[in-house]
Design a protein around this nucleic acid. Structure first.
Length: 478
RNA sequence: GGCGCAUUGGUGUAAUUGGUUAACACGCCGCCCUCUCAAGGCGGAAAGUACGGGUUCGAUCCCCGUAUGCGCUACCA
């Protein structure tokens, strides 16, 4: 690549990784890796009131967990650190002073209450709510006096009036906004911390970010950023605003309508590979006749281009996720599956210490589960005692049932052991010898072995239970 | 309210630089397999591309308007 591609994922540490953020991170990662570029993690922790303990560690862990390893960032380090915005305060201050000196920014002294009132009045008048830019008219003396007497202040962006800002979004094409509609955004808060707008422009430039890929919610603030880039005389990076992820009712994906944290889905037993695969296809696809749906991270890296990202929001469809997760589970090595399912089994009170049996259980349930969390319920028949209802007992009391079960008992006892495929022939023998077939043959056995009308084929059930347990369950009936 | 963005079956998407019987996947329905439930195999219903105007010999694709949805409208990101 001629010039090095550098992108960043810049979350604020909220304590968990929102699915929308996951996808933004994923797209950044895919774009970087596809272009042999660098993927940078930067922590946007400029809001002191929203600090969450341990959030950053968690974020880093989950990102790594998902396979989205960053090249530069907290802990990993890099040439352009620090990667915490809270540790870059002096940098922001310096550039802010530069803006002030060159007339691109100005001091303002309104209190939060005053601004609230201003907005309320504007609202009542049906006007657009924005700062009325009145501090632009303060004289130098007034400003100096206020600062000297310790009045708290912020620094605002002096938005050029009566202009039109145009930019080209890699996903949406041309976008234009009148500067008169743009607020004189606060750049530096009264606590000395920068706002997102200031910090992100400075950091992206200093960190040599070439492409900004972020959520659609930022689209309307791009002009503010462009004004800043221009004020500094910096080149504006390319931008791509990815569509939002939506609830089934098309509102923005929110907690109220289900889980939104990546961690929640991992906990529920969705595989990270499946989750990544699924999220990638939300708002993006390789196009051009590509018929596959299942892609590894590596394949995604190969195929990903920003131009193929959609511009409309995408509904998060849990049913498709379930299907995809089931696909990954089916393809997974059984031993590996057995291992990662253990915690789910143990929480559900299933003892997995008999490894031989446990592995047979996993083999049997592999095609039945969409998520790891569903494993215990499908394993129950192999571990819990048979518990028949009165109705089921009646079925077993019938003449044919007795005949079948007695014969099965004898024939099973005669087997050295039950294997994956020697039980079915036994059933065939019984059918031949007794003339009983179909439901009358199989259902009594199914009930005797599991006390359930539904389940895997009997050969599998018997194999999982093993000879001893099959005989146990048959004998309990007597 | 203002500004911005979006709009292909229920959902996710596809459709060479405007010309296709509008394709694929999930879901749904049916059939096969089968003792049952899944899985798997086969097939089906489901959009004429939000609506209305243009441009064009011809628009899912280009332009305008309307509607709807979403986003932004903080000393939050």
């Amino acid at each position: 690549m001629t010039n090095d591609i550098r992108v960043r994922f810049a979350p604020s540490p909220t304590g968990y990784l929102h699915l929308g953020s996951l996808r933004t991170a994923l797209f950044n990662y895919l774009f970087a890796k596809h272009n042999n570029g660098k993927f940078i993690l930067r922590i946007e922790d400029t809001d002191q009131s929203r600090k969450v303990e341990g959030a950053v560690e968690n974020l880093i862990n989950i990102l790594n967990d998902m396979g989205l390893k960053y090249d530069e960032g907290p802990i990993a380090g890099g040439e352009y650190g620090p990667y915490f915005q809270s540790e870059r305060l002096d940098i922001y201050k310096k550039y802010c002073d530069e803006l002030l000196a060159n007339g691109y920014a100005y001091y303002a002294f309104e209190t939060a209450q005053e601004l609230d009132e201003m907005r309320k009045i504007q609202q009542m008048q049906g006007k657009q709510t924005m700062y009325n830019r009145r501090a632009r008219n303060l004289t130098e003396n007034e400003i100096n006096e206020k600062i000297a007497s310790g009045v708290p202040y912020v620094i605002r962006l002096k938005v050029p009036l009566n202009e039109e800002i145009k930019f080209n979004d890699l996903i949406r094409g041309n976008v234009k906004i009148e500067t008169n509609m743009i607020d004189d955004q606060v750049l530096l808060k009264s606590d000395g911390f920068p706002t997102y707008h200031l910090a992100n422009v400075i950091d992206d430039h200093l960190m040599k970010i070439t492409h900004i890929i972020r959520g659609e919610e930022w689209l309307t603030s791009v002009p503010k950023h462009i004004i800043l880039y221009n004020a500094f005389g910096w080149q504006v990076p390319d931008m791509a605003h990815v569509p939002l992820i939506l609830n089934p009712d098309k509102s923005k994906l929110s907690k109220r309508q289900g889980d939104v944290a990546t961690e929640d889905y991992l906990k529920k037993g969705y595989l990270k590979e499946a989750l990544v695969n699924f999220m990638a296809l939300l708002g993006w696809n390789p196009g051009e006749g590509e018929k596959r749906e299942i892609f590894s991270l590596k394949e995604l890296v190969n195929l990903f281009t920003i131009e193929k990202v959609n511009s409309a929001g995408a509904v998060f469809n849990t049913e498709k996720l379930n299907w995809m997760n089931a696909e990954y589970i089916k393809q997974m090595d059984t031993a590996k599956l057995a291992e990662i399912v253990i915690p789910y089994m143990n929480t559900a009170g299933i003892d997995t210490s008999d490894k031989d049996k446990y592995n047979r259980v996993i083999f049997a349930i592999k095609n039945y589960i969409n998520t790891l969390q569903e494993a215990p319920e499908h394993s129950e028949i192999y571990y819990s005692n048979v518990n028949l209802s009165e109705e089921q007992k009646d079925i077993l009391k019938s003449e044919t049932s007795k005949q079948v079960l007695n014969l099965l008992n004898i024939k099973t006892a005669a087997l050295f052991e039950i294997t994956a495929d020697n039980f079915k022939p036994v059933l065939n023998e019984i059918q031949k010898e007794t003339g009983i077939k179909g439901k009358n043959l199989f259902m009594p056995i199914r009930l005797a072995l599991t006390s359930k009308e539904h389940g895997p084929e009997l050969g599998t059930i018997a194999y999982v239970l093993g000879k001893e347990e099959v005989l146990n369950r048959l004998n309990i009936l007597n």
